[in-house]
């Protein structure tokens, strides 16, 4: 297979990947990916010159790809940025990705902050998981997701960030949309998109997803071609997750019907404005405010008590100390 861009120039180069719109050699693929990601950032105003950007990074292929391109974008425009890693304390998994992330940040001179479950909650996920599973039938992924989101938001806010970049890619987003549809969680779909969430709130660092249109395969290929050292493995708790089943189903469909995943996210984008408007209108509480705040910790939430505080009560772990924004 030959690179179609090279062929247009009368050159003959082997392709490294075949995509929807043609096959690309290594050089043209790297250019294509950079253009695609920067276009996403610009089109959806994901990062503005007035922002301070925090990149949620785990050391995996997607967060390193997001971190690299965010670093390039911010450097060109003198926009301050840093990386933030949440160490859940998953033995045999997290310490490997942490090393890759530290090496990466050292190479590109990116400031890295790390918040750990052990320090913040007094327990690792490995310690919490069995408690929530046995006592409440709650999978470790649920606990992980709730506490990770809490720490990402509070730490990014304390460090002065106005935007939180995550490495969510086309695969993640198409899975999320389908999961929400299948579970009847349409309101959660309203919060999806390259610029996540429904509204701005000073307590909530708005999440942005520059890799929204990037597939997992593109992300992995990028890391390989750039020589980024990435530990390739799945979280040991993935077998508990509903998402893994949806992922496998979508991968089978993609194999048989190419562009399935991109069609799903484009279909979502087609209705996303109406969804956001609908749930924004429904979101107003008795004080005519769009937000509720947890009666225990004061963080924005959808009910009286936030999910994190409910979990802390169930597990009996420590509550993270809230700090003032820098």
């Amino acid at each position: 297979m030959k690179c179609y861009k090279c062929e247009l120039k009368g050159e003959d180069k082997k392709a490294a990947i075949k995509l929807q719109n043609g096959a690309y050699c290594k050089e043209h693929f790297l250019n294509y990916l950079e253009e695609k990601i920067f276009k996403t950032i610009r089109k959806y105003n994901l990062i503005l010159e007035s922002d301070t950007v925090c990149v949620a990074a785990s050391g995996g292929k997607d967060s390193l790809t997001a971190l690299y391109f965010t670093f390039l974008f911010c450097k060109e425009r003198n926009i301050p940025m840093f990386a933030l890693m949440i160490d859940e304390g998953i033995l045999g998994y997290r310490e490997k990705t942490e090393k890759d992330l530290r090496d990466f940040c050292k190479k590109f001179e990116i400031t890295l902050h790390i918040a750990s479950f052990k320090k913040e909650f007094g327990m690792t996920l490995d310690e919490m998981g069995p408690i929530t599973l046995e006592k409440f039938g709650r999978k470790p992924c649920t606990t992980c997701g709730i506490f990770r989101r809490l720490l990402l938001n509070t730490k990014a806010r304390e460090l002065g960030a106005t935007k939180l970049v995550t490495g969510h890619n086309q695969d993640d987003e198409s899975q999320a949309f389908i999961m929400n549809v299948m579970q009847g969680h349409q309101k959660q779909n309203a919060g999806l998109g390259p610029l996540a969430g429904l509204n701005d709130n000073e307590m909530y660092v708005r999440r942005v997803k520059p890799l929204y249109f990037v597939s997992e395969k593109e992300s992995r290929l990028f890391c390989l071609l750039k020589g980024f050292n990435v530990e390739f493995g799945e979280c040991p708790y993935v077998t508990y997750s509903y998402r893994a089943d949806i992922r496998d189903m979508l991968n089978l469909l993609e194999e048989k019907y190419p562009s399935t995943k991109s069609s799903i996210i484009n279909s979502f984008l087609d209705i996303s404005l109406e969804l956001k408007q609908k749930y924004n209108n429904q979101n107003t509480n008795s004080n005519n405010s769009k937000f509720k705040y947890c009666s225990v910790c004061g963080e924005p939430c959808s009910g009286e008590i936030c999910n994190a505080c409910k979990l802390i009560g169930e597990i009996g772990c420590k509550r993270p100390k809230a700090k003032q924004k820098k």
Partner: peptide, 30 residues
């Protein structure tokens, strides 16, 4: 993603007897 002799390969690339073939997974994380 497949590599043949440490070079990225596409689906239509043919394989020779002494080629070193690796099949890398793109699925990672949680």
């Amino acid at each position: 993603i497949v590599t043949i002799n440490n070079d990225i390969a596409t689906d239509d690339d043919v394989v020779k007897e002494k080629d070193n073939v690796k099949i890398l997974s793109v699925i990672s994380g949680g």
